[in-house]
Simulated scan of single mutants.
Amino acid sequence: MEFMEVTVPNYSYVFNFEKKFIHQDTRDWMQNNWTYGFYYCGIYMILIFSGQHWMSSRQRFELRGLLTIWNTLLATFSIIGFTRTAPELIHTLRNYGLYHSVCVPSFIEQDRVSGFWTWMFVLSKLPELGDTMFIVLRKQPLIFLHWYHHITVLLYSWFSYTEYTSTARWFVVMNYFVHSIMYTYYALKAMRYSPPKFISMVITALQLLQMVIGCAINIWAYRYLEPGQKDCCISKHNVHFSLLMYGSYFILFARFFHKAYFVGRKNTKTSNDDYSKKIKSN
């Protein structure tokens, strides 16, 4: 595939570790070690479900201090990642249009900033598995959406990086943005602050919007994979996997949104009404 030469955003400052980033080295490592993702996911599954069994007869751990540090670190990382990758997406859309943003990969040799933080994004999916251990050790409900989401994002991110998938710039920026808000919210909760309740609803709504945009980007890219269309740096296998993943996420997040913010509120209101009636009757 041949694409026109492009310019990169005018970053106000480029760190030395970004300047030294060599995208081909990281790609070679991912291609040579792609099976590691499956091993990590297997270990993850064993740990969380055996951990639940082990915790079933024990008191929950509070872990509030560790949880505060954990969420603060992930929030900080996500905010930095967003501020370093969003300029490239905005620059591409402004100067080259939607087709280029969907079909030409961003982590090319010229843009080492975007390349480095895309690589960091992929690697971050491994430590993010640690979210689940807090749920297990604090004996909170572990829903299917949680661990399914963690596993599939890790595997898909590693797979896509080896292909230099062009749609990744959209997925990376969106995920960094949502996680910036989500982990900041969790950090504040762990610190015993009480952010407005509507923020949690906004976060889930943003996750749903992320899935809708993800599906739309994949469908847009798939159009260019038909014979006679323009080049697009994404495989049909990748589009199929991504659509299945984003589609399933949308269904699961929509179900969670409905149960958490509509069914849950209805049940709470009913319980409060019943309690009020009981008080009045006494």
Rank of each mutant, 00 (worst) to 15 (best):
V212Y: 02
A187D: 05
W54N: 08
R27Y: 14
A205S: 15
T68Q: 13
F61P: 00
F256V: 02
D111A: 01
A254R: 07
A75G: 04
Y183K: 14
Y36T: 12
Y39C: 00
E5L: 14
S242P: 09
S235V: 15
L63W: 07
I234S: 15
R58M: 12
D273S: 10
W34L: 09
N267I: 04
M55I: 13
V113D: 10
T7S: 13
L126D: 10
P195Y: 11
Y222L: 14
K236A: 15
F171C: 06
F159V: 10
L47R: 03
L188K: 01
P141K: 01
R60N: 01
A221Q: 12
I279K: 15
V8K: 14
T76H: 00
W29C: 15
T152L: 01
E128Q: 03
R58S: 08
E5K: 11
Y13W: 10
I22K: 13
I43W: 10
Y176H: 11
K125I: 07
L252Q: 02
H237F: 15
V263H: 11
N272G: 04
Y164M: 14
E5C: 12
K236P: 14
K230V: 14
E62A: 10
G228V: 10
S276R: 13
I80K: 06
K197H: 08
L206E: 00
F256Y: 05
Y13D: 10
L66R: 13
G97L: 02
Y161G: 00
S157Y: 07
H100W: 14
K236L: 15
I69G: 14
E128W: 01
L126T: 11
N33L: 07
Y176S: 03
P227V: 07
